[in-house]
Write a protein that binds this DNA or RNA. Structure first.
Lengths: 234, 234
DNA sequence: CACGCTCAGCAGACTAGACAACCTGGTGCG
DNA sequence: CGCACCAGGTTGTCTAGTCTGCTGAGCGTG
């Protein structure tokens, strides 16, 4: 039995959710009157429960017909890092650390990480390959206070996996992207001709209220097209 | 006066929304009982209105205290077109139509617009300026069935405004972005040196279930950095 | 002055109805 | 056979309350 102290509309909501998850899209949910009978509550209470599921996108109401299981909506893609992104594209992601050390935050990095200049940050520079071929150079700056022992504990392949295990997976990010030509150093690391077109990508990633990562990446334009989804619904 | 036929909870909701937008976070909204008095409706109706604003994130309830203006949550930015984007950046957006005609959809455009090859589409090519200086060349393809009389009715400055007035503002979009060098034609239109770095941006914009716009744009990399927010909350 | 009590005012949860708008399917008439 | 109409079930909207739990302010007491 459900807890008698639980809110009634929550009881009804979770009952319907259980009934409905796994059902095919378009199959009918119990009618409001049925649920009124079943739970012995007022219809307003049932409606409150159903409203929540409709807002959630699990159910769909059709006036005069009933309430039905909605077909799963297109959902905002979660924020991914390089490793996940390449895996999604069916490529093997590898990284070669060029630099990993504790530094004092400069003015730009300090502002982006919401720190004060001179605070300790982790600077991690990697050459990242996909299927063995250079894809990008990434400079990541991390707030050392949020990641105690990060440099000592052996660098992970996927930064975002590592953040996730510390409960710091980014929930929000702002990216800026523009086009440029590769510098001499970049072109030799990326194994492309000097002055080749490259995509410069900056990210500021936030988990809850904390800025966890600031990064600047340079991608080979011949191998990489950035893809983003905007808006939460369809 | 608000329309008497309008739903009461909608009237109350919009009344409170107007009162509240612009107020400082933390300032109190009218109490439910006040609104009951003011509108002469039942409290359930007022609660329904307030509930909507609370789930929207505009208001915040504090039990035993009252209802207050929530501090604005970081929200997924809405999908904007060129004109809105440039206005946001404080620049004057202008467009010069290079081509606007009815065409038969080729294979790529047909697939992207969810049509069959040979269906009528509107092809609209514009040179777009910001503060008088060329910024990008945009080729937009629109589903003619959704926009009857579009070519005849005088082209708007902002495509997205025009879509909005027809109830077709994009609710979801997928963008892809990469870097390249300008072709000869592009460089002369954009008034840059040949082989300059450019940002190529493709968009597929969906409103509800309907694909309303497919576009390909070429931006001057020296003037434009794409900026996107990812994730819905903070 | 500091503490605790009471009380008014607030939102939270819920009830038991009412009528309207809407869709579907069946019935009966032309 | 085809169409109009109606009945019944559904959601949509709304009313007029009750009871509960929480908060803050004011007041009195030690």
């Amino acid at each position: 039995m459900t807890d008698g102290r639980a809110l009634k509309h929550v009881q009804v909501r979770e009952y319907v959710r259980n009934l409905v998850t796994g059902s095919a899209p378009g199959s009918p949910a119990p009618s409001e009157r049925e649920l009124v009978q079943h739970f012995g509550v007022a219809r307003m209470t049932v409606r409150q429960a159903m409203d929540a599921l409709v807002v959630e996108g699990l159910l769909e109401r059709i006036p005069g017909r009933g309430t039905f299981v909605a077909r799963p909506r297109r959902t905002a893609s979660r924020i991914t890092g390089y490793t996940e992104e390449m895996t999604r594209r069916g490529m093997l992601a590898e990284s070669q650390t060029l630099l990993a050390r504790r530094e004092q935050a400069g003015p730009g990095v300090a502002r982006a990480l919401a720190l004060t200049e001179g605070d300790a940050v982790i600077h991690w520079r990697r050459l990242r390959r996909a299927d063995g071929v250079p894809m990008c150079i990434e400079d990541a700056y991390l707030n050392e206070v949020l990641l105690p022992g990060f440099l000592q504990s052996g660098m992970p392949t996927s930064l975002y996996d590592s953040l996730e295990s510390r409960g710091l997976r980014p929930t929000w990010a702002e990216d800026s992207v523009n086009a440029d030509k590769a510098t001499g150093e970049e072109s030799s690391l990326l194994e492309v001709d000097p002055m080749s077109a490259v995509l410069r990508h900056s990210r500021r990633a936030v988990s809850g209220e904390k800025v966890v990562e600031v990064s600047r990446s340079v991608y080979r334009a011949d191998r990489y097209t950035l893809w983003v989804q905007l808006g939460q619904d369809g």
